[in-house]
Amino acid sequence: MKASDTSAAAPAVLRRRPILVTGGAGFIGSNLADNFATEGHDVLIYDALARPGVERNLEWLKKRHPSRISSVIGDIRDETSVAEAARDAQAVFHMAAQVAVTTSLTDPRADFEINIRGTLNVLDALRQRGDRVPLIFASTNKVYGDLADVELEKTNDAYKPRSPAVRDAGIGESRPLDFHTPYGCSKGAADQYVLDYARSFGIPTCVMRMSCIYGQRQMGTEDQGWVAHFLIRALQGEPITIYGDGCQVRDVLDVSDAVAAYASAWKRSDAVQGRAFNLGGGTANAISLRQLITHIEDVIGRPVETIYADWRAGDQRYYVSDTRLATRELGLKQPISWLKGVAALAAWLQNESGLARSNSLPSSLQNAEALS
């Protein structure tokens, strides 16, 4: 795909050494871009706009920051255009990716090209520059595999580890890597490339192995972004399909807390060079799918219909991040409570989607968006 600049401000921005955000029109990328532009940085977004709805995020960013946001519509697999976008960047946040396990199973070659070759394109663009440009990479908890060896017990509506250490703290960075599904392989390989470019070439890279991030500007689907997807279906009065028994547990983190972690990794790039951190809400924000649905029913004030289907490949029964290392090394604050954050996302989604009044939130939660 041939890259093209869509902003008249781009040449000026490029001269000012912008922060490059690949996948910057996506959910986390757009929140990162907004944060940095608000702080007074120039931001160059590199995005193929392949995910439905992300063009609205780009329009929103340009309206909010007309003199700070520039964009290149391009494919991360295009080595030449990636190198051009990275030419003058002062820092790179590499968020562009194929993000769904299901898609990787139907088209593993594209998954490989985007997640591995695309990441190598970004890394090598920085290597060939010959200077120390920080790169922060969005990895995933899927690098740890399905965690089938973690012994679990089912208590009411959630799985819990039998091991007190795992139950109290979660899964730590010392956990052996174990790639499952093409998506796990591609993101895991990219994860390791990013860490090795710090070892081999001295590039100040850092890896964030994310659990479930949710929040404003997330247009979740059944394949990725489950918290927002559940809310969207519920607000539209449509059934939610649960794959498995619904007792699988994840720790969830509001995107504002994720952005703070990424920003801190950049500011501390020398100290965290070549290191990987598990990033999530931790044990205090660990919930099962069933528990989220119960809370959604409380938020919207009506029952939610659920449909059950077979487990999907590579799905972890239990994953909760041990956040102690990231909290200590990145200086992170206490994350937003999932109860508060989900209510805020529900209010934002209702306002964003323009749902009919009959599907509106209870009046007590109309201003929940402001809580975040």
Results as ranks from 00 to 15, higher is better:
H65Y: 08
D178G: 03
R268E: 12
V133Y: 07
D107L: 07
L20H: 01
T327C: 10
T327Y: 09
L195C: 09
S288T: 02
D223Q: 10
Q248E: 14
P52Y: 10
Y318C: 07
G23R: 09
S353F: 10
A89L: 03
R109T: 14
K160T: 12
Y193H: 15
R117L: 11
S104C: 13
D157Q: 09
D111F: 07
S200W: 06
G244Q: 08
R275A: 13
E79N: 05
Q350A: 09
L49H: 12
S200Y: 06
Q236V: 05
P362G: 05
E305T: 12
Y262E: 03
A228N: 10
W348V: 06
A91L: 03
Q216S: 07
I293F: 02
W266N: 01
C247W: 06
S81M: 09
A346V: 06
S321H: 03
L20C: 03
K154Q: 15
F201Q: 13
R56V: 04
I296N: 00
T102S: 13
R328I: 03
L349E: 05
A198D: 14
W266Q: 02
A234V: 08
R324Y: 10
A138L: 11
A37H: 01
L231S: 03
G281S: 05
L105Y: 07
R117Q: 14
K2I: 07
V259K: 00
A8L: 11
R302G: 12
P182K: 05
G354N: 07
H94F: 01
P11R: 06
S256G: 13
V166E: 08
R162W: 10
V82W: 01
E352D: 12
V99K: 15
D131P: 08
D131W: 02
S70D: 11
R132F: 06
L279S: 02
N121H: 04
N278T: 04
V92C: 10
A265L: 04
N121K: 04
A158W: 13
S360D: 14
I203T: 04
D78A: 09
R64I: 07
A10W: 10
V304Y: 00
Q236R: 15
A260I: 03
P176S: 09
S104L: 11
V304M: 01
D257L: 01
A89K: 00
A83R: 08
A326R: 00
T102D: 14
A313C: 07
P176G: 07
L14C: 03
L147Q: 12
K154W: 13
